[in-house]
Design a protein around this nucleic acid. Structure first.
Lengths: 213, 213
DNA sequence: GTCTATAGGGCGATAGAC
DNA sequence: GTCTATCGCCCTATAGAC
């Protein structure tokens, strides 16, 4: 259930970051969700402002609210988008490796996760939702998202409960490294060892994501 | 690296400075930090208000600000308290088992972690700090806290890098379960399997922490 | 459909009494 | 040392023009 459509505005000479650019309503909605994902990932649900999302998307703040009704509804839309991408990418890996054993699948899914990590907003928005369980709507969405990924690993990828648990635990750890910008401490030998140990493949990415912006 | 002075020091008979003040300043400070830990754990750094902390501690909101200077300074005090408790408890387990092998130590430390989990505010305040790396001061404190725990596992507990990584990853996963209140979904067989798999010992606790309040 | 202007409410921090 | 009162800012959401 991919919600993203190929944007027709790629044919425009100027990137669709300005409100003056003619654009389909759906595309503009996509644009706002993408911008919101980055902002929510950066500042969290409460810390993010609809104004920051608006500025990032190149539209006015009231228009952002108008499109989604409330800030919370916008965040929920971001969460749905995030988990949708996660499930889509994981499913693609699983389907592309019908005869793989668990270890091969684990590596493939790990790579897919690393690719998703490159868009810091996606996994960090999810992470913020995970710790924001005190908000009923956000908590419910977060739990459903987490369980859907767990279910995918268990049924489609045929992981055991322990394999799925360890895979997800490792993912939480990676998210945490990016969230706290551990890459900033890469000159500390202890931090370097930790980062390299958590994910040798994504160590450089973790450093880059920490120094960005 | 103990950052806290023992508040229970009854070295000198508390001289009440005023008739209405029945508590030493230090004790009141402790009281506010404890209250703040619960509030920050519940609502996160941005979501928590100094007024909620004040109400929980039974003092006025301006007094909370005056004691710590700023809300951020209060949060940093909470973080220092949290990591201090973590290090203290872990060190006690390590020192109590000088001849234990890694597996025994892992179990002992896991139990200590479960005990800390019972105070939801402690680990969730840390968790909120971990994803709030965009704030420079909070991010720096969060990274230092994480690295100090990792170092403890590596040097004092003599874990390998992989053992320390897996232990911490498992901890992040537990925090996440509590933060998103996965215990609310315990009637869902999938959720139950997940919770029991993550920590059979603490499954009941996870459910209780989710339904509290 | 998208904007400007602004209402309305909440929050961190300050001033000052006691 | 601790309170009450309050300021001033920021943010979500609404109203209404174009």
């Amino acid at each position: 259930m991919t919600l993203i459509k190929p944007s027709t505005s790629t044919a425009h000479p100027t990137p669709p970051t300005s409100a003056t650019t003619r654009m389909r309503v759906e595309d503009r909605r996509e644009l706002v969700i993408t911008a919101a994902m980055a902002v929510f990932g950066e500042r969290g649900y409460v810390g993010a402002t609809t104004d920051a999302v608006a500025k990032a998307a190149g539209v006015s703040q009231p228009y952002v609210v108008r499109m989604f009704g409330t800030k919370e509804a916008l965040f929920l839309a971001v969460l749905h988008r995030a988990v949708d991408r996660l499930l889509t990418d994981f499913t693609a890996v699983i389907d592309a490796n019908p005869d793989s054993d668990t270890e091969q699948l684990r590596l493939g899914l790990g790579n897919a996760y690393g690719d998703l990590l490159a868009d810091r907003g996606l996994l960090l928005s999810l992470m913020h939702a995970f710790v924001a369980g005190s908000d009923p709507a956000i908590g419910a969405t977060a739990r459903a998202a987490f369980l859907s990924v767990y279910s995918l690993l268990r049924s489609r990828a045929r992981f055991t409960a322990e394999e799925a648990r360890d895979f997800l635990a490792h993912g939480m750890m990676l998210n945490t490294m990016v969230g706290m910008r551990m890459g900033l401490e890469i000159d500390d030998p202890v931090a370097r060892e930790l980062v390299e140990c958590v994910s040798p493949i994504n160590a450089d990415l973790i450093v880059r994501l920490a120094t960005d912006r």
